[in-house]
Amino acid sequence: MAITADTIDHVTLERLVEAGAVRGANIVGQPGGWGVVIQYGMTERVLAAKRGAIRIFRKFETLVAYLKGIGIAKYQVDASHFDPVALKTERKRTDAAERMKNAHEAAAYKGWLTQQVQEAIDDPRPSVPHSEVAAEWATERAALLKQAESMGS
């Protein structure tokens, strides 16, 4: 089962089951899991995942529970292409792992920054007005310039 335009999504499948239009389902085994072909009217469509690719169930029990949950209790199973050796024992999505790592780091930074801002707001020491700081800096700057001139002469 490759990616195909002839797919059906979960919401549409639920509506067809509610309307009694589904006349059958075929569970098709393949390397890596199980796919579902839904038959309604004179049409057959492959069940699609949220992002449009064909939905593959790694475990047969999960697929059975899914179908029963939406109201399909009878179906045919074709296990001729199912390969249990091809099941991935380890599923790593480095892109998803990196996204989650970045999200956790961003959340930690946001928490730290929020804490720092709150501590600054709650600081009991009196704040120094801008005009006072500007006057002090002007005095210090003038002294530094005078010192630099005396060293250069």
Rank of each mutant, 00 (worst) to 15 (best):
K74V: 14
K92N: 06
A103T: 04
Q116I: 00
A97D: 13
A86I: 05
A73F: 10
D83M: 04
G111R: 08
Q118S: 06
Y109C: 05
K92E: 10
H104E: 12
Q76D: 15
Y75W: 15
T89P: 06
Q116C: 01
A86Y: 11
D95P: 03
L113T: 00
S80E: 09
M100H: 07
K101V: 04
A103K: 02
W112A: 06
M100D: 10
H104S: 10
A106P: 03
Q118W: 01
V117Q: 01
V117T: 01
L113A: 03
K88Q: 15
K110Q: 08
L87P: 04
E119S: 00
A96K: 15
E119W: 01
K88S: 15
Y109L: 13
K74C: 11
L113D: 03
A108S: 11
K101R: 10
T94K: 09
E90N: 06
T89K: 12
S80L: 05
Y109I: 07
P84G: 04
K74D: 14
R91D: 12
D83N: 12
K101W: 04
V117A: 01
K92Y: 05
A79F: 05
V77L: 05
K88D: 15
E98G: 02
E105D: 14
R99K: 15
T89S: 08
A96C: 05
A103H: 00
Q115H: 05
A73I: 10
V117K: 05
A97F: 04
T94N: 06
V85L: 12
A107Y: 01
A107V: 02
R91S: 10
S80A: 11
A86E: 13
W112R: 11
A103I: 02
K101G: 00
R99S: 08
W112S: 01
V85D: 12
T114P: 00
R91C: 09
R93A: 11
K88M: 15
T94P: 09
A79D: 11
H104R: 14
D95E: 15
A107F: 02
E119Q: 07
K101C: 02
A103Y: 07
L113I: 00
R99E: 12
Q115T: 10
R93K: 10
P84N: 09
L113F: 06
T94E: 11
E90L: 13
D78P: 01
D78W: 01
E105M: 11
A73K: 14
A73H: 15
L87S: 13
A108C: 05
L113M: 00
E90Y: 07
V85Q: 13
R91V: 14
V77I: 13
A97N: 07
D83Q: 03
E98W: 08
Q118Y: 02
L113P: 01
A103R: 09
E119M: 03
L87M: 15
E98L: 13
Y109K: 12
Q115E: 02
K92M: 10
Q76M: 08
W112K: 07
Q76F: 11
D95T: 11
